[in-house]
Nucleic acid binder design. Structure first.
Lengths: 349, 349
DNA sequence: TTGTATGCGTTATCAT
DNA sequence: ATGATAACGCATACAA
């Protein structure tokens, strides 16, 4: 179990009786002309000596890395594995690797990871988090690191952005509910510490408005404490709690719109636990379309946010930008869509 | 948007009027004595010039990396985010970063990732996958890379291993079901392409045996095709299909034991869709204890496999091994536990 | 077509 | 306490 020194191009050069330069030319597929006989000897010796190139040496020389950083709040939130999968698929396709970091929505953690990433001389970062320290991010960019920011309507910062139309998503949910004959619709959410939540709420209100339904204050149910960083099931628990509050209302709504699917899961479970039925007694619409939303009972009607596609797109944009295929920043907003399953009752029949 | 050359220790040295060596001594926290006045000037200049060390240079020189590779089959399978979380928590605590790869249970993909990781001069790999090419892995190890293999009873390969007692888990499930008065218990699974599945089945059989229940061939339900690499919901769909087969049996079992929670989700949903009830008509026990198992209806009784703890342990073992705190390989098997929720009916009352 | 020499940014060795 | 210099492994400009 002794440390076997790794073989370098010099070892191979010595073995074959040529120079390191020639070995490098062959082994790095540089396309540089080398006589076939010699080339073969080098290739042979490389196998023989079990040569594996040291990427670090190459990186130092060429000052380019094939890595891109990805920062997400928490990989345990089922939305993000899908996102990461999309990013990775596209990245691998182009020969890039991803370096994954969980920020836990903590500002300092995120900042440290970004710094650490930069010290590794990565070419770009996909940032799905809440860093609003624009000066910091601008510094990062000026040092040559490309950025794709997800879901952050940071008006000021000039960089690539991929957004999602949460407002429209919220409106679609309400439209559908109204179409199904509902007019008493509650909105259940965790605190508006994320833009996505307040946007969805905005959609809720606009949806009511354009369907001529007055917004009722007591139908807006937001929990008090935000502690999701500790516990992934926070949203779920919150959904459960809010149901209790809901049922204490003098006029109980016929439907609820949840700020996300996890919350909806909690809502559905609590309703059922109480001996009521979804959607017979209360209808529920979620937001996200997690893979698991189709697996619960009843299968959840929800607004789809295209996670994998977002990931792919982010990868593509970042890598293009790193290769300077495109110099101007790009800004895209993805569209929600309604996924009808089984958690909404049609009051019209 | 011009490329601003990054500042190096030489720039700082020039600025301050000292040598690069001294700058390095200060900025790398080497503990080497440098006069306070000079040290401060260097620190100041570093801030001033916005210096950020180039890890690549350091790595090349010191030939050590603070990265560890992690290979999982598919981050979309909800078990793995938890595992990765555990790995990362522990790794960060000790100053290591993780490089995540999805092998999609594909042999060649996995092999390529391992090679790529090694070329990056990482110190170790946590491998949660199915590479059974021992010679390959041995080569890797001989080149100095430490290995922690998860869930792979590769008898031959000498390296760190963390296992899980699937057999015992299976037995616990059956014991519990019997305790609740069940004797007609089916086993539903996807094909035995993973050790965990055949082991769980072994536990199923042993459980029946020690409870004096004869194993019935027709209660063993395994789907025909394995195509999970394409579709994460494969297990779920499979569970649904198998229910149909189950109900065609002349004597329908009172309970089913699912090879994993995802499969159980499908089973539960299909049963309910058919107008039957869980657990009133059919009881279901799962295997894994995904976070979501508590969120479905009814909440799933299942066998817990400690994902986060496994991750933490793997990190700890790998890093210790890299630091040669411990030289001998270690081999641990983690214990299952029963999580009782609401998907099993007590026939005794 | 091949070889020599240099430099990427850092740390370590050896003088001073 | 500080500075000059070599070395890490590789790729490349230049010479031959």
């Amino acid at each position: 179990m002794e440390k076997k020194k790794k073989t370098t191009i010099y070892d191979i050069a010595k073995e074959v009786g040529t120079s390191a330069a020639t070995v490098s030319r062959v082994l790095s597929n540089s396309g540089y002309p080398v006589k076939d006989e010699l080339r073969n000897k080098i290739l042979e010796a490389a196998k023989e000596l079990n040569y594996s190139p040291n990427i670090i040496g190459r990186m130092l020389k060429k000052n380019e890395s094939r890595d891109i950083g990805v920062i997400v709040p928490n990989i345990s939130n089922p939305f993000f594995p899908q996102l990461v999968l999309g990013i990775e698929q596209e990245a691998r396709k182009r020969g890039y690797n991803i370096l994954l970091c969980n920020s836990f929505r903590d500002f300092e953690t995120e900042r440290k990871y970004i710094q650490s990433l930069c010290q590794k001389q990565i070419g770009g970062i996909i940032l799905s988090s809440v860093n609003e320290d624009y000066v910091f991010l601008e510094e990062i960019q000026q040092s040559g690191v490309k950025l794709v920011v997800l879901d952050n309507d940071s008006g000021d910062l000039k960089c690539n952005k991929i957004g999602f139309d949460y407002v429209k998503g919220g409106m679609m949910a309400i439209d559908y509910l109204v179409e199904m004959g509902h007019r008493d619709i509650a909105f259940i959410s965790s605190p508006f510490t994320k833009k996505s939540r307040s946007k969805a709420f905005e959609g809720y209100k606009l949806g009511l408005y354009r369907n001529n339904i007055a917004f009722t204050d007591e139908y807006l149910m937001i929990s008090d404490i935000e502690k999701e960083f500790e516990n992934t099931t926070y949203e779920f628990e919150n959904g459960k709690c809010m149901v209790d509050r809901l049922l204490r209302l003098e006029k109980c709504p016929t439907a609820v719109f949840a700020v996300n699917d996890m919350t909806a899961f909690g809502i559905v479970q609590r309703i059922i636990n109480l001996g009521l039925k979804v959607p017979e007694d209360i209808s529920v619409v979620g937001f996200d379309n997690l893979e698991l939303s189709s697996m619960i009972n009843p299968p959840l009607t929800t607004i789809n946010q295209p996670s994998i596609e977002t990931g792919r797109l982010a990868s593509r944009i970042l890598i293009d930008s790193m290769n300077e295929t495109r110099r101007e920043d790009i800004s895209i907003s993805l569209e929600p869509s309604l996924v009808i399953r089984n958690s909404v009752r049609n009051l019209r029949i």
